[in-house]
Design a protein around this nucleic acid. Structure first.
Lengths: 318, 318
DNA sequence: TCCATTCCGGTCAGGAAGTGGCCGGAATGG
DNA sequence: CCATTCCGGCCACTTCCTGACCGGAATGGA
């Protein structure tokens, strides 16, 4: 039996689940003498995990935070929660960490027992999301590709270009990039013998073949820049400025989460600035303020408001 | 030196970062002979982690999924991503796993080095959330309380009841419950010698005193039920039914994520049902469909639409 | 102040386990 | 057919693990 390693892990696990443990209790659970337990604790400390100990009646052992992440020992529920959380973060719920979340997700999913994966999938549907976020990429596809990138495994899939027929592709995946809430895959296309960028929402049936390859010279130092260059002109992005007839503090409370900037005016109103891709978002925010407002900046927003206002009135008076 | 335990962990870590490793490479990195490496691999297998091995040129070792979660060995970025993901999930982004996410978050945060905690805090602001979600509870408060619940530590905080002055409380925390997107703490109030329910958004300055207590008989088998009973009558919750003049498939694509139910009609329109706490949400969804619609069910929605429509028109015509 | 409780770490001796070197074997892919 | 890779038995040596026993020291409550 690989006793000492297993015991070290179990000890770490116990210390992670409940913060405070008396020595005798730990020794009992591990099935060793208290002397040996003390030595195990010492071993953990030598490994760099700071185990605090206190004497007397209220004494006991506890694991504190140290300088490095210790191995996380998770129970099933926690593992599922982590996978689900990472999935939503990878979907763009938290800006700026999509790629990292995906990488971590790939790691978790890879070692996760199948029964837990099924639970994660089952929770997939219950995410509360904004209906404006656009198409989510299938999480399975995402993790399959992320793993292939990490492990240098060839990938096959069916791709439908913006103009053209669906066709099979064989690639050596390099990196996944999220840009403006869309996932892209940078990969070396084996048949075309060149680097290509694929939009994940146009890609189906992704599967790692199992065959490994040696990494090529990347097409660019930063994969995101490469994608940026390839997909070219960005979609219209609006800079909305609105004068809201309500106290700045009130408006700020509502918009803070959405990332708007609020400047207080002198007459009890305030100026709200938002950067958005479409107008649905700002309308929602403005509706929530329950105050009157005037559009300062984009004329297009004027028209949009008129149309929507008329539509709502039609529905409201029927 | 605690050699074999440390090595087992490092080996596990290596196997988790990159899926495929030739034996010689692993042995080199661990600083042992290949024979010993083989024994280490065997040890992992005995511990229940299925290490797959392949022979020949494309051979090597890889960690597969097994029947239990192995210890997760994360680098800094991944740990941060996990914490951030759990935090958003605990905020109610994914329904039904808030408590579990919080529990996992408490575990991660507890062992996370301070420098990583700071990074998590820094990312706090950048979450893309709906401005309608109501006040988010401070994540630090949340984790402090969650840890106190888990570790049976007394808690002190300042509480402002719905009617009354802020006052200090000393409690023995029992459980955190999320109900209708709000966090509640069930705890034994030491001064009042009774079980109480506290709303977290009315609670400030939470701190664990460090003093531990013995768990009392819980006030109810299910803490959520207890909270439900105590907070009593639910806020108005609307059952909105709308006829949308657009194809069912189109509407479904937009509303699926928000949890609405769509029934196709015979004339190209469809019936959309939503259960919501306020009307901002459905308006956003309906605006996104870019189609006309009629309100079928709650008359209050009529009035709301008229008011909002007029407000938008005022803003749109200025 | 005293006392029970708890962690601490030294020492000892027997036993278990880890280690590297060596080997023939077998699967795999070019 | 051959190079590459994992496999696992054997052996001798060394390391370390373990439990038992001890006196000591910090702690918090009576």
């Amino acid at each position: 039996m690989a006793n000492t390693s297993a015991r070290t892990l179990r000890l770490l696990s116990l210390l992670q689940t409940h913060r405070h443990w008396p020595g005798g209790e730990l020794a009992g659970r591990l099935g060793v003498s208290e002397r040996t337990l003390r030595r195990d604790i010492d071993r953990l400390r030598e490994l760099g995990y700071p185990v605090h100990s206190g004497r007397g009646l209220a004494g006991g052992y506890r694991l504190r935070s140290g300088t490095a992440m210790p191995p996380l020992l998770l129970d099933d529920d926690e593992a599922v929660a982590i996978a689900v959380g990472l999935r939503t973060a990878a979907d763009g719920t938290v800006e700026g960490i999509e790629e990292t979340s995906l990488q971590a997700l790939a790691k978790v999913i890879q070692v996760m027992p199948p029964r837990l994966r099924r639970r994660v999938d089952a929770l997939r549907a219950s995410t509360v999301v904004s209906p404006l976020d656009g198409p989510r990429t299938d999480a399975t596809t995402l993790t399959v590709i992320a793993q292939a990138c990490r492990d240098d495994e060839r990938l096959t899939f069916t791709y439908t270009p913006s103009s053209g027929e669906p066709a099979g592709r064989r690639v050596e995946p390099y990196r996944l990039v999220m840009l403006r809430r869309r996932w892209y895959l940078v990969a070396w296309d084996l048949d075309r013998a060149d680097w290509r960028v694929f939009r994940l929402d146009r890609l189906t049936g992704a599967a790692a073949t199992g065959a490994r390859f040696r990494r090529r010279e990347p097409p660019a130092a930063d994969a995101a820049v490469f994608v940026q260059d390839r997909i070219g002109s960005r979609p219209a992005r609006w800079d909305v400025t609105v004068r809201v007839h309500a106290a700045a503090a009130v408006v700020e409370a509502i918009t803070a989460a959405a990332g708007g900037r609020v400047e207080p005016g002198d007459d009890g109103s305030c100026l709200l600035r938002l950067q958005v891709d479409d107008f649905d978002w700002p309308v929602l925010i403005l509706a929530a303020t329950r105050a009157d407002f005037d559009v300062v900046h984009p004329p297009e927003f004027h028209r949009y408001l008129r149309e929507l206002g008329e539509r709502l009135l039609r529905a409201g008076s029927a």
